[in-house]
Amino acid sequence: MKNIYKKSSIISENAFCPGCLHGVASKLIAEVLEELQIHQKAICVLPVGCGTLNMESLKLDRVVAAHGRAPAVATGLKRSLPDNIVFTYQGDGDLASIGLAEIIHAANRGENITVIFVNNSIYGMTGGQLAPTTLVQQQSTTSKFGRNTSTMGYPIKMAEIITQLESPTLVARQSLDSPRNIIAAKKIIRRAFENQMNHKGFSFVELLSNCPTNWKMKPIDSLDWMRSNVIPYFELGILKDVEGGK
């Protein structure tokens, strides 16, 4: 029988909630690293939040940074070990709220690292509080009546902000809601790592994700909600691609 699918050897258990797309993000990273044969050179900088659970699932050298500081830790690692592959895996609270300075400045310095930003519009690990990316009118445990723009502002579009900087060479946003988008996400993750291998500088991939547990939805409904609410606000596509002339 022909073997058409093989689980990546660097993924162990899935530590995430049932129906959560973090597991898909981790799987795609693992597959890409293995396909590019760089998994033995890779160092993963983990965030504080649900992404921390990758400490259980990714069989790579990895370090858990303080909340939001992964890009600074990655800077120290990559500058010390320029021949290794260094990437951060960060959620929206980690990257777009407490770690805003670290991500902007690592991007602006053009650190030759890869950033995987998993945006599920909520603080998952702490139980569903308002995130910088929570949608307008979306409910959370600290916005019971929905995000009110007059006091809570609007969801932050990180990929667009990173795109404004001169140094980053690849900035993209994809979604993990469907097989079609997952295939596209894997393709762009692969490019982001190839960029680093080719010493092209800072790559940023935002992956739209879900949180059935804290959105209080069935996983299947969370995907529908992504399609009708999240994706229309956070536009998918490649925002900046210096190699590709964009």
């Binding site: 500081r69 600074a72 500058r79």
Partner: peptide
């Protein structure tokens, strides 16, 4: 060696955290 001016003290100490993970004297 490597010198980096961090964007804050918060970033600077985390940069040496990363470099120390790599085994450097920081």
């Amino acid at each position: 060696g490597v010198f980096v001016q961090g964007e804050s003290e918060v970033a600077a100490v985390n940069m040496i955290y990363g470099a120390s993970c790599a085994g450097k004297r920081v």
